[in-house]
Design a protein around this nucleic acid. Structure first.
Length: 568
RNA sequence: CGGUGAGUGGCGCAGCUUGGUAGCGCACUUGGUUUGGGUCCAAGGGGUCGUAGGUUCAAAUCCUAUCUCACCGACCA
């Protein structure tokens, strides 16, 4: 490809709204352009990358025994009514009407369509298991599209759905997909982690997310420094094996004027925050006889509301209590609440439960207790895992300690069970001629998101540093002053022809531009290899090779260029 | 949905308080200059000032409504 016949579309400045580096670079490098909120046009360079990612995904899916199909973007509403998601899904599901006033949706995912398909097409256990996938555009009407392609409304996703007669078969395919996903991210060349995930509202027992590690990620991932254990922080178990020391102090009420936070309490009493516990009041489940539930955490720990909401006493969805309502019931403000003498169900985090001689609110404004102890001063409470894990915690699998990194979710696999197949009556006849509802798995990869995630993980001050496997071009030819020098033009044209003949994806910068402009553009776009042709080196029958990833520069003989680059 | 802010040429912005010829940088076109890291000089082209209504002799500027977008939060997986 010649730059003069191409839509390079690089820019010096990025739009003001671009927040994260991948968004800025995707605009500047001419990969995408925004059409409207959350909607992007893919320019030639961007599409090349996207297609490469898709090709790797497709290849690994095929190898793992999945079969490609393509389903419609527009889906009839009655399928969604059948599965119950017409009501469940909420405003993220874009609903449209056709000319006959019939309801349709723009597909955010395809469980309904595929389940309806299999229900009609497969009627015998002999045809199972089956794993079908597509790489296709999805639409989710996100509340707040942001970070460019990272969270857009329209995006490309690979979604696979597997069907099984029993859990064992489902488990096998699930493991196979897990491995295929690892292969995909290895091949693309990204630092990633499969993490144990919350299966959320979709239900089902087992679920893993695949995260690309990058500081701009929206999720916190906890992983062991000594084993394969990795989990979303929302889910990572906080274990606490410490035994609680015996009480040595008497309970004593002290004045703590205006101390409304753990920091100020710790400061006023000149103790470490770990000596304090904090008591949070949350709304109780409607079935409960209480309005509120008290949650006690060690002073330096944070509540994990995903864990809390799983407790039967806690209202779902999770809601913090209103301070005025609490003051009315308990007679003091948030900052002075404590478990001692508290007439509410008390859930104590495992770590807080091992505190002795601790400090807590006295349920009286501007007063705290010191020397409080479980059992002796608070008799009725339940110990639960409630806090967010922090770096340095012991790994739940008993090996090593946890580290926390930010991750970008690029894949998610679920064992769905029979949620959709049951709702839609999708089953087959088994060996004994009995109708059986199928088990399903579903496996998603955000293809467009991978492009952004790859940039988040691979860039420098000059621009994108594509992993070789997904770079828009493999090599750039950068001639110096070609339009004034016959020798240079001849060399450039010859190299260009050689690369094309060898099927090397080459971008030949034949613009009448200054060298600096070309260097900057090629580095911005992130082409892994460059060949710089200049008069100086041509005298020795040489050109300069530059590696975008390592920054390495070497002089090589013209005759060896092709072999040199293809060997890299 | 709540809070905050912004809509002026393709991109980034000034002008608005105090109404009076729409401006700057980048990009683009032409000529010259320069040529191993975003040269310099000169001359050009391009804008219903988000939209609608109002006030006024006169509105980018003041008033009202409305739309869109962004950021923070909530929500969502």
């Amino acid at each position: 490809m010649r730059t003069t016949e191409y839509l390079l579309a690089t820019q010096k400045e990025s739009p003001a709204e671009a927040e994260i580096i991948s968004h800025k670079l995707m605009i500047r490098a001419g990969l995408v352009r925004k059409l409207a909120s959350g909607l992007y046009t893919w320019l030639p360079s961007g599409l090349r990358v996207l297609n490469k990612v898709a090709a790797i995904v497709r290849d690994e899916m095929n190898k793992a025994g999945a079969i490609e199909i393509s389903m419609p973007v527009v889906q009839p509403a009655d399928l969604w009514q059948e599965s119950g998601r017409w009501e469940e899904y909420g405003p993220e599901l874009l609903r449209i009407k056709d000319r006959h006033e019939r309801d349709f949706v723009l597909g955010p995912t395809h469980e309904e369509v595929i389940t309806a398909l299999i229900k009609n097409e497969v009627s015998s256990y002999k045809h199972l298991p089956l794993n079908l996938y597509q790489i296709q555009t999805k639409f989710r009407d996100e509340v707040r599209p942001r970070f460019g392609i990272m969270r857009s409304r329209e995006f490309v996703m690979k979604d696979a759905y597997s069907f099984h007669l029993g859990d064992e078969s489902l488990e096998q395919t699930y493991q196979r997909m897990h491995q295929a996903y690892c292969n995909i991210f290895e091949r693309i060349g990204l630092e990633y982690r499969p993490v144990i995930a919350d299966s959320g509202s979709i239900g089902g027992a087992v679920s893993h997310e695949f995260h690309v590690l990058a500081d701009s990620g929206e999720d916190d991932i906890a992983f062991s420094d000594a084993s394969d254990y990795a989990a979303n922080v929302e889910l990572a178990e906080a274990i606490c094996t410490d035994a609680r020391p015996g009480a040595t102090q008497a309970l004593e009420k002290v004045a703590t004027p205006d101390a409304k936070t753990i920091e100020s309490v710790a400061e006023q009493l000149k103790v470490n925050q770990t000596k304090c516990v904090k008591t949070l009041i949350v709304k109780a489940d409607e079935e409960s006889e209480y309005d509120f539930v008290a949650i006690v955490l060690r002073g330096d720990h944070q509540l994990n509301d995903i864990k809390a909401v799983k407790h039967p006493l806690v209202a779902s969805p999770f809601q913090m209590a209103d301070e005025q309502a609490v003051e009315k019931t308990l007679g003091c403000k948030f900052g002075s609440i404590g478990p001692v003498g508290l007439d509410l169900p008390i859930l104590v985090d495992r770590s807080a439960a091992t505190c002795a001689d601790f400090i807590c609110g006295a349920n009286e404004d501007d007063f705290h207790y010191v020397g409080a102890n479980w059992e002796r001063d608070v008799s009725d409470f339940e110990v639960v895992d409630l806090r967010k894990v922090i770096a340095g915690d012991a790994s739940p699998d008993g090996k090593g300690t946890l580290q926390i990194r930010k991750g970008i979710e690029v894949g998610h696999i679920f064992q769905l069970g029979d949620k959709y197949s049951k709702a839609m009556g999708c089953g087959v006849l088994d060996e004994s001629g009995k109708h059986q509802i199928l088990k399903m798995g579903c496996y998603g990869i955000g293809v467009t998101r991978i492009v952004a995630a790859a940039i988040e993980q691979n860039h420098d001050d000059y621009g994108i540093k594509w992993p070789q496997a997904i770079a828009p071009f493999e090599v750039a030819i950068i001639p110096m002053n070609m339009h004034k020098s016959h020798r240079i033009m001849e060399t450039a044209l010859k190299l260009y022809a050689d690369f094309i003949a060898e099927n090397v994806e080459v971008l030949f910068d034949d613009r009448k531009e200054r060298p600096g402009v070309m260097f900057n553009d090629m580095e911005l776009i992130g082409i892994p290899h460059s060949i710089v042709i200049g008069e100086r080196n041509l005298d020795n029958n040489q050109v300069e090779y530059k590696n975008r990833l390592t920054g390495e520069k070497t002089l090589i003989n013209i005759d060896e260029v092709l072999a040199f680059v293809t060997n890299q």
